[in-house]
Design a protein around this nucleic acid. Structure first.
Lengths: 232, 232
DNA sequence: GCTAAATTCAAACGAGTGTTTGAATCATAT
DNA sequence: ATATGATTCAAACACTCGTTTGAATTTAGC
């Protein structure tokens, strides 16, 4: 009972993953479903099919495991965001970018990440969404540190793109966009939306490919609101 | 040590609150700061200055206490939302309502609730925000049940107000608005925004009175996006 | 094949969890 | 004043938590 004979069936093709990776995968799933406090080390090691002590051996503590779960994905995500922004700014050759391009590069990249199952896919997206409202101190601190550089680059790009809009206004709307996106992600199991808000099943059962344009339209609408100086 | 001599100094004026109410107040604060799993019965009863067994005596279990913490506020909030919608529809005399009025009645009422400290004020708002992404089964079920009637009324009002917009589109945007609002609330301690996203302190240190129009503008912009048939 | 490091394992640690118990205290009504 | 029910209390319940231990096992280098 302590650890099942063979949990985590090979699922993926190239799966002779070593202990570290299996723990990270199991933890990612369980954190998404039950939260951090709601997930015990025994649940994680049980699902990963490894010994209870393995987490402390490989990561040191539960807290460090949580950080590593995020680092594994966020590093890639934020590098990608910076790469795309670099590319856009290089093309623009000093001129301000269209805000819609900036928004798509930041939020669209997050959503499109879900298509790559190898990168954690939807599970990690839901985990991000639920974590943005986590009050736990060390998690927020870790997030702020991990995001700081990227957010600042995008903020500057928006400032430049919307020179007539007060900076505080831009930062707040960026904040709202983040909220809408996090929540959209966290709540976008079709089934959960159906049961929670009474959407008809056939309306709700859409893939992420339909969510992305819907969300993007909403975000840009919010960003543009009462800003006539906005690009068409 | 088990319970401090006199915890919870009278703080408020009229505070000879009975045990039940003190437990609810303490639980509301602690749940907001530490989450449900991160808050123990001993923390609650310690902060409330009551015996450990009092929670089980008055509420039955921790789970029922959580539900009561929400019910105490949500009942008032949702009744208020229904009352306002009734009023608006009575004035309109059968004609569709302006979407901005509907949005303000639903989301504005939530934000404005923060001004009444007697209703839990900002603490409860932050708790709501953090709870919207909670995966915990019984909490989501409880929320869906508590909200079902209100959400349906507002959905119908929006359908009527925007007859040319596909219903699915409206429901999704309602969903996004909820996300932006929840997150705005949960993250809108000035200090946390400052540290997390690097806003200048003088830009971030604004009261809720400035947040409300900002958020409202964003929400309406998102709702209006690419919908030319929208009211001016 | 032998050595030494890396990894896994079963078992236990102390501390904290939500809940229950039964006696003590309080309030209220007769 | 007394009886009755509501409430509070200290103590203990059985259980789970994250972490540590030290021996067993596997892996890698020579």
């Amino acid at each position: 009972m302590t650890q099942a004979a063979q949990s985590l069936p090979p699922a993926d093709a190239k799966n002779s993953a070593d202990t570290r990776e299996r723990i990270l995968d199991a933890a990612e799933h369980l954190f998404t479903e039950n939260g951090f406090e709601g997930t015990s080390m025994r649940m994680i090691t049980g699902a990963a099919g490894v010994n209870l002590a393995a987490v402390n051996y490989h990561f040191g503590s539960k807290e460090q495991l949580i950080q590593e779960v995020f680092r594994r994905r966020l590093t890639w995500l934020n590098q990608e965001r910076l790469r795309i922004l670099d590319e856009l700014e290089a093309e623009a050759a000093g001129k301000p970018l269209k805000p819609s391009l900036i928004v798509d590069a930041f939020f669209g990249t997050l959503i499109r990440m879900a298509e790559h199952e190898a990168l954690g896919g939807r599970t990690f997206l839901r985990l991000i969404g639920r974590t943005m409202t986590e009050p736990s101190g060390f998690i927020r601190a870790f997030f702020a540190e991990e995001y700081a550089g990227v957010v600042d680059r995008y903020k500057q790009a928006l400032f430049k793109a919307l020179p007539d809009v007060p900076k505080a206004e831009i930062v707040w709307r960026f904040h709202f966009m983040l909220g809408a996106t996090s929540y959209a992600i966290a709540g976008t199991d079709a089934l959960r939306i159906v049961t929670d808000w009474g959407i008809e099943p056939q309306e709700a059962d859409e893939g992420l490919d339909k969510l992305l344009p819907r969300l993007m339209s909403f975000l840009l609408g919010g960003l543009r609101a009462q800003l006539p100086q906005f690009e068409s």
